[in-house]
Design a protein around this nucleic acid. Structure first.
Length: 458
RNA sequence: GGUCCCUUCGUCUAAUGGUUAGGACUCAGCCCUUUCACGGCUGCAAUAGGGGUUCGAAUCCCCUAGGGAUCACCA
């Protein structure tokens, strides 16, 4: 079978991380089976759709590397086809015109809810439409009233629902535009979608949509309804749990590789928990291994994955990322210094944006320690710093020699390394912790090091 | 409320009738060490509750409890 999947977001806002995960699953499943992965923008509701949202979705998909190499489908461009299907259904007697106004509908809805029965318009059984030619109407699907429908969902398993709980859903609005319920089914069929992989929140829809497919004798696709992502308190993920916009994580300094890996592991795993890159995941992915229960979004785990990614990615890639993000313009010396120190710096951060706090001491021309308390200490050890400075000045510049120089100094003064280490660190970085002192001194270079050690704190 | 789904350490999960219920993250401790990290080691910690079926149940069945989804001329 030639697998065809699709990711079908509605362009009403940014790309939600739940949607991003759905995209990943669709992407991987298609790739795993050498099939096609398509993206379809579900813009049937013109009032809520926007160009801005479409751009945001593409931006998110591009960042995650799960964009489609095929032409993007815009649902609104297929309206005529959808409308034709609605009338075909009407002609065949599988649908009917409903002239209920909104007041009547509200009453019907309340009554339905009270009795626990689905909405079925009284127009369903009217033999003649009467003299209603000028009245507004919608077209509703005539759901089967007996029997049951079974879906063998790849993730959820075999689920059966009685047909009499299905409502006569609207497939064509009174303004002659198709609803999502119709458009989605028609487009899936036209696009030859073989596997519908989407959020669990659509599971109930599947039982309703499948009736259209049956009435038209179309091929029923495979379904895989994946569980939603929850917040830490077990409710549907929302803004109060943190960022739900995928691209916010880019802004926060997460790498797309980490995001991909984490989102994938939320609800899917193989036996050995691993850090999945896109290629590896493509080989291993199977819908059968997707969990049926919703997973909670855990920032700590994401941080951990991201930190690991930062330390396995090519340094030149991260370097590029950081330079772009902070718009750094570095001279050759600084460039070399940064690149050499970067691996050590990366061990200390969860997201690369935290690197920002290293820029001041790394590149600032006339750097000095700003912290008042530290300044007092530096003042006290002014002499020591100057002595070390002058020894370093005479030292032939290599890590080995720098180390020896420092060791010689503490030997001569009967000190221990920890007697000079913290002071040196404050003078050179303005902080109490940093990468190895010797490598810092080496990378800073003789002139800068000595200048910083000679700074007069008062 | 109707319908459907879910429930293994705090979190993500492994174990498809027989395991001391495993791993990862978090947390704690130790080691490494010039600091902070990284890394290494150790530890804390789970089968929601109750009934069955079975020689044997996290696993199969039933009930209860809790959670979630959905019930639009939204998608």
């Amino acid at each position: 079978m030639n697998v065809v999947t699709r990711f079908a977001p509605s362009p009403t806002g940014y790309l939600h991380i739940g949607g991003a995960r759905t995209a990943i699953f669709n992407y991987l499943f298609a790739k795993k089976h050498s099939g096609k992965y398509l993206v379809r923008i579900e813009d049937t509701d013109k009032k809520r759709s926007s160009e801005k949202a479409i751009k945001a979705i593409h931006k998110g998909l591009n960042w995650l590397n799960v964009n489609s190499e095929h032409k993007i489908v815009y649902q609104s461009q297929n309206f005529n086809s959808h409308i034709n299907v609605a009338y075909e259904l009407l002609e065949k007697g599988y649908a009917y015109k409903c002239y209920l106004n909104s007041d009547e509908l509200d009453k019907l809805r309340i009554k339905s809810r009270e009795n626990g029965i689905p909405i079925k318009s009284p127009w369903r059984n009217k033999k003649k439409q009467g003299d209603n030619n000028n009245k507004e109407f919608v077209i509703r699907l005539k759901m089967p009233s007996d029997g049951s429908t079974t879906i063998d969902d790849i993730v959820q398993g075999k689920v059966t629902v009685k047909n009499d709980i299905l409502d006569d859903m609207v497939i064509l609005r009174s303004d002659n535009t198709p609803t999502y319920m119709l458009s989605s089914v028609v487009d899936d069929n036209d696009m030859g979608i073989t596997h519908i992989i989407r959020g669990d929140d659509h599971f109930n829809n599947a039982f309703r949509q499948i009736q259209i497919i049956k009435y038209l004798n179309w091929k029923i696709p495979f379904y895989a309804h994946i569980p939603l992502i929850h917040g830490t308190d077990g409710t549907k993920l929302s803004k109060r749990h943190g960022a739900t916009n995928l691209f916010d994580y880019h802004e926060l300094g997460y790498t797309s590789d980490a995001m991909f890996s984490y989102l994938l592991q939320l609800g899917w795993s193989t036996k050995n928990d691993a850090d999945y890159c896109i290629d590896r995941a493509t080989k291993l992915f199977a819908l059968e291994n997707v969990s049926r229960s919703p997973a909670k979004f855990d920032l700590k785990k994401l941080n951990n994955i991201n930190a690991k990614k930062l330390n396995t990615m090519k340094i030149s890639n991260i370097y590029k990322l950081v330079i772009e993000r902070f718009k750094l313009s570095l001279n050759d010396d600084e460039h070399k210094r940064f690149k050499s120190l970067l691996p050590e710096l990366l061990k200390r951060v969860k997201v690369y944006t935290e690197l920002e706090f290293e820029f001041d001491w790394l590149f600032q021309k006339d750097f000095f320690c700003k912290d008042k308390n530290y300044q007092l200490k530096l003042q006290k050890h002014n002499l020591m710093l100057k002595e070390i400075g002058s020894r370093l000045k005479d030292c032939e510049w290599s890590e080995e020699n720098i180390k020896n120089t420092l060791n010689q100094y503490i030997f001569d003064k009967s000190l221990k390394f920890k007697d000079i280490g913290p002071i040196l660190r404050m003078a050179l970085t303005g902080k109490t912790n940093s990468p190895d002192l010797v490598s810092i001194i080496y990378e800073l270079g003789c002139t800068i090091t000595v200048n910083r050690l000679n700074y007069e704190y008062k």
